[in-house]
Design a protein around this nucleic acid. Structure first.
Lengths: 208, 208
DNA sequence: ATGAGATTTGAACGGTGGTTCAAAATTTAA
DNA sequence: TTAAATTTTGAACCACCGTTCAAATCTCAT
């Protein structure tokens, strides 16, 4: 019947929605497995077990293992991609914009992606897919760098190397996937704010 | 002849030193391969190729792949483990101590470990080894947390959750392995200082 | 120079995991 | 209810990779 990204045109709406629900379930299970074991050590059997099927059922929804990873990446990026423009709309100053991006990114990491490890698994993608994901990631980084540069130019931030500053910020945020567990003992509703205060505060011009 | 952690007692000094040199070379190659591909995707053939031997030669020096990883972990921890006590000896204030630890840790990451990805590969260790590495890592984190707590208690730092603050700091530092490349375009001699200024500065009590 | 020891190599093994494919099972729609 | 469509399953395949082992090669020490 299906190509594994969408359904045949004559399939009923009910069947389509059921298919999409199962597909989404597989992606959720994959994300969890990748977080726990990494992509390479996760077997299709692991993912299937979390879903409650056998590994070969996954081929009804995805053509191969890598595509599952790729789709996880795309979903993660979709969550993150609007954060910059939202921060720019809401705020004019660099500090407020940066604070907003960080807070939102932490929220996405913890509430939507459940501590997604996806930032780590880029090298497992092949050729064009890897280039695409890296491209989108680099766009996001660039956008944050521009905010930092804005802060420096307007005298709000110390004259740091924006690239290093952004790597530090994104490192802190991406590392959340290493320790954050939904319902775990660490991490509260306010952690986005603490992260942002810390990471933005450290850039502000010192008043001596 | 050898057990793979040391040599037979009657082996000449010359042969011992040669053996140890080769062994160290293998560890260096492994660290590089793990950085580039991750532990799971790195084959023994990859490591061997970097050394210029065949994969089976590695068994003369290490009993299995995991032991290579374990030894990489131990070496990394050896580099990091003295940083806390050094900072405590050198400084009395929390901010100075924290600044010192961060600067030193960044230096170790970039100069000694060439951007070691080792923080990421803990789940690949089995049982007792994993517990050991996690234990040592947790000790280090705890030490940093105590510095942060000192800063809070003495009114030097904002009243943050020390655990979150330390995760942010260690995230930023560990993330270096994702973008830092020896001789690469990013990263200068002063990046440790920028990182430390940023990450410590963000904790300092605000003066309004 | 030579024999012993150290080091490296290549062949082989076995287990694992991604993938294919056809049959079985389940669901759907008339 | 029934046939068609969809979904799941299990058997099988094969490539790959960690590991073993004995032979080949190299190095060392006398």
């Amino acid at each position: 019947m299906s190509s594994t990204t969408d359904l045949a045109p004559d399939v009923s709406l009910h069947v389509q929605e059921k298919w999409l629900r199962r597909r989404a379930e597989i992606l959720r299970a994959a994300l969890r497995a990748f977080r726990e074991k990494g992509y390479a050590e996760t077997t299709l059997g692991d993912i299937a077990e979390y879903v409650g099927v056998r590994k070969t059922a996954l081929y009804h929804y995805f053509p191969d293992k890598e595509t599952i990873l790729y789709e996880c990446h795309r979903e993660s990026l979709a969550e993150v991609s609007g954060l910059l423009s939202a921060a720019r709309r809401r705020h004019t100053g660099a500090a407020d914009r940066l604070h907003s991006v960080i807070t939102d990114h932490v929220r996405v990491m913890t509430e939507t992606l459940d501590g997604s490890p996806i930032s780590f698994e880029v090298p497992s993608l092949s050729g064009a897919r890897q280039a695409e994901i890296i491209g989108a990631r680099d766009q996001y980084e660039k956008g944050i760098r521009e905010i930092v540069q804005q802060g420096i130019s307007e005298g709000e931030f110390e004259a740091v190397d924006p690239k290093l500053a952004v790597f530090a910020i994104l490192g802190a945020i991406n590392w959340i996937s290493r320790w954050y567990r939904p319902g775990g003992p660490v991490g509260t509703a306010d952690m986005g704010n603490q992260f942002a205060d810390h990471l933005v505060g450290g850039l502000l011009k010192r008043k001596w």
